[in-house]
Amino acid sequence: MSVIENFEKMLAAGQDSALLRYGLGSAYLQAGDAARAAEHLARAVAQDPAYSAAWKAYGKALAGDGRTDAAAAAYERGITVAEERGDIQAAKEMKVFLKRLRKQAGGE
């Protein structure tokens, strides 16, 4: 059974949580399914708006799904959350991702 199948089984059993949604979204992102990843990561940040790692993954998923404006908004929110929590590394990474995203959007 794959990681995704295990997580989906846990979700179906009613074990919904920000951590589970983050794990599921990350697994879908690794599997190349950015749209499904974004769905689960959106739920993760809705359940725990202070989850900086989920914001970072959500931005990546949205960018991977071609939703550039939404990805930029997710990174901006994630940067704010990370800085408020003192999660400096996550904030730095999201700033880099946001800069790249804006550069790509402007260069096309």
Rank of each mutant, 00 (worst) to 15 (best):
M1V: 12
V3Y: 14
I4V: 15
N6T: 14
N6H: 14
F7W: 08
F7K: 04
E8T: 13
K9Y: 11
M10P: 06
M10K: 15
L11I: 14
A13S: 11
A13N: 14
G14F: 09
Q15T: 15
D16E: 15
L19N: 06
L19R: 12
L20T: 11
R21Y: 06
Y22A: 10
Y22M: 03
G23H: 13
G23A: 06
A27Y: 11
Y28I: 11
Y28W: 13
Y28Q: 08
Y28G: 13
L29K: 12
Q30I: 07
Q30E: 13
Q30Y: 05
G32K: 10
G32Q: 10
A34Q: 06
A34G: 02
A35D: 05
R36I: 00
R36H: 01
R36A: 09
A37W: 02
A38M: 07
E39F: 02
E39L: 09
A42F: 01
R43L: 03
R43P: 06
A44K: 11
A44F: 10
A46V: 00
Q47H: 03
D48Q: 13
P49C: 04
P49D: 11
P49W: 02
A50G: 10
A50W: 06
Y51T: 02
Y51E: 02
S52D: 09
A53L: 13
A54T: 02
W55D: 00
K56E: 03
K56G: 00
A57G: 07
G59T: 11
G59A: 07
K60A: 12
K60M: 12
K60R: 11
K60H: 07
A61M: 04
L62D: 09
D65Q: 10
D65E: 09
D65T: 01
D65A: 15
R67E: 11
A70F: 02
A72D: 07
A72P: 09
A73S: 03
A73V: 01
A73T: 12
A74K: 01
Y75D: 11
Y75H: 02
Y75L: 11
E76T: 12
E76C: 00
E76F: 01
E76W: 09
V81H: 04
V81D: 07
A82F: 04
A82W: 08
A82Q: 12
E83Y: 02
E83D: 12
E83S: 10
E84C: 05
G86P: 04
G86S: 05
D87N: 10
D87R: 06
D87I: 05
I88D: 13
I88K: 09
I88H: 10
I88T: 14
I88Y: 01
A91E: 06
A91V: 02
A91M: 11
A91P: 12
E93F: 08
E93I: 10
M94F: 08
M94L: 09
M94I: 09
K95H: 05
F97H: 04
F97K: 04
F97V: 01
L98H: 04
L98V: 14
L98M: 06
K99R: 13
R100F: 14
R102P: 05
Q104K: 03
Q104P: 00
A105R: 05
A105C: 01
G107T: 10
G107H: 08
E108K: 03
E108A: 10
E108W: 00
